[in-house]
Each structure stands twice: as structure tokens, then as C-alpha cells.
């Protein structure tokens, strides 16, 4: 909403460096392997996505909810507030912020139904007021900065210059990017360019080389950042192939029990 991304709270307040992020992970997630950490990120992004699908919300709203979830757990652990409750709450708040409000009861029932459907091992013993209360912790943690920018908008703005398959491929790569924390580290246009770059690898020839070169040149982004994002996406795909959702509820419980024991 700010006149441009550089004036937004997202850039001025929430952008972390990769080192800061690594630091956070090494303090919070000491008991987990790198693979497990990635799997947890995939898991909660997926759960939020599933709630969003049930509510039939737009992809950007789902992305906003995922960013809220990540922002909350920068300074808090899963032991402080149950991540399943937080996932439902993030969706609730994101829908309101993006002018697409759903009744809190509806969010609650869709979320509980989705958790039950996903695994019998997920416990969701919360009631509607818990979501409202959880929302206040989320708002406070984010210091009430609510606007989130997404790479999707960059694609939409540039869409006339892109072929339909290139657009679709980039769009789904951007969806995947929310399964990592890169949204906390890189500006949206860097992620958009990286997604487009990767989509070119996947779907060669739809954008002529000259067009592509021009496009990348016009966007004027830092190529090292773009390549870093591409690398992170590729490693996501690798770890993702070993991901098994069925094992996740147990991992979440074990992880929380570990934090509880060590605090």
C-alpha cells in the first residue's frame, strides 16, 4: 500500500538478512535437523493453504496468512502458542486485512475440519474465542503492521510481456516459495524474477531469449540475490521430495516437547 515497496513497512521493518534468519533458527530450532526444519515450514504453509482452499480465498490472501505465521514465530516458539491455532488465526486476520472477511465461526469450523481430515494425530482443542485472543497476540507481535507485498503482483504487472505458460509456471513457483522463509529475506520482485528465471528452465522456448534478456535487464534487480533465491528454491524441491505429511504431527509434538523440556 505504501507508494512503493521501498517505503513499505515490509521493507523498512520486516526484512531480515539471511544471517539474522539463520541466527533465529539456530536458537529456536536447536533440536531439529535442517531437513526437519524445512519439512515443518512446508507443513504449516500447506496447512494454511488448505484452509484457504476451503474458504476459496485468493492466493495472495493465503500468502499473507503464511507471512503472518512466519513473522509471529520469528520471536516466539511453537511452545508459546500452538502453531495449529496460529495457522487458523493468521488466515482469519489475513482475510480481514485483504478485505475478504469470513465469519470467525466459519474459519474455526473449516480449520478444525481440515485438521481432522489431514491427520487424526492433530489436536485442535480450541474454541472460537481462542482465535480472537490469538489474533491479539499476533497483532501485537507484528506491531500492527499489516500490509504484505507479494511477488504475484510483480507478475501481474508484467503479465502482458509474458506468455501464458511462463506466467503459470512462475506463479506456481512463487506459491512454492512460501514453503521457505525467503519471503522474510528477499524483496518480492527478486523472488518474482527468480521464479521467472526457473520457469524458463522448466518451460523453455516460450519467451524468446531476446525477450527474456530484455525483461531481466528492465527489471534491474540484483542478480546475486536472484541466483541465491533460485538456489534456495532448488534445494527446497530436493528436500520436499522426501517430505511425508503423515509424519509431521508427530514431529511437531516432539519438537514442542523438546522446547518445553529445555525451557
Amino acid at each position: 500500500m505504501a507508494a512503493n515497496y521501498w517505503e513499505s513497512s515490509q521493507f523498512q521493518r520486516f526484512l531480515l538478512t539471511r544471517y539474522e534468519l539463520a541466527e533465529i533458527e539456530s536458537t529456536h530450532m536447536i533440536q531439529l535437523t535442517n531437513h526437519e526444519i524445512t519439512h515443518l515450514k512446508i507443513y504449516f504453509a500447506d496447512l494454511i493453504l488448505k484452509i484457504g482452499k476451503r474458504l476459496r480465498t485468493r492466493q495472495e490472501i493465503i500468502a499473507t496468512a503464511i507471512v503472518y505465521f512466519k513473522r509471529f514465530y520469528i520471536n516466539n516458539t511453537f511452545y508459546d502458542i500452538d502453531p495449529y491455532l496460529m495457522a487458523a488465526t493468521c488466515m482469519y486476520l489475513a482475510c480481514k486485512v485483504e478485505e475478504n472477511p469470513h465469519h470467525i465461526k466459519h474459519i474455526w469450523s473449516e480449520s478444525s475440519a481440515m485438521f481432522t481430515e489431514t491427520s487424526p494425530d492433530i489436536r485442535f482443542p480450541y474454541d472460537i474465542p481462542d482465535i480472537a485472543e490469538c489474533e491479539s497476540y499476533l497483532l501485537e507481535e507484528m506491531k500492527f503492521y499489516l500490509v504484505v507485498y507479494h511477488p504475484y503482483q510483480v507478475l501481474i504487472d508484467e503479465s502482458i510481456k509474458l506468455s501464458k505458460p511462463a506466467l503459470q509456471a512462475s506463479w506456481s513457483i512463487i506459491n512454492d516459495s512460501y514453503r521457505t522463509d525467503m519471503t522474510l529475506v528477499y524483496p518480492p520482485h527478486v523472488i518474482a524474477v527468480a521464479a521467472l528465471f526457473l520457469s524458463r528452465v522448466v518451460d523453455q522456448g516460450n519467451l524468446s531469449d531476446i525477450e527474456a534478456q530484455q525483461w531481466f535487464a528492465d527489471l534491474n534487480v540484483d542478480i546475486t540475490d536472484v541466483l541465491q533465491v533460485v538456489t534456495e528454491l532448488l534445494s527446497l524441491y530436493k528436500v520436499w521430495s522426501e517430505y511425508d505429511e503423515a509424519k509431521m504431527p508427530e514431529l511437531v509434538s516432539r519438537y514442542i516437547a523438546d522446547i518445553a523440556a529445555s525451557s
Binding site: 500500500m1 480481514k96 482465535i131 491479539s136 503492521y145
Partner: peptide, 21 residues
């Protein structure tokens, strides 16, 4: 009441004022 959290007017107001300067 707190039952549905922050209402839309409040959301809009904070959301807007947090970004405008």
C-alpha cells in the same frame, strides 16, 4: 466484544495509517 477480534474499521484504520506518512 472480543469474540471476533478486531473489527473491519479498526483493521482498515491501522493498516492504512501504519503505511502512510
Amino acid at each position: 466484544n472480543m469474540r471476533s477480534g478486531l473489527d473491519m474499521s479498526a483493521i482498515r484504520e491501522v493498516k492504512a495509517l501504519r503505511e502512510l506518512r
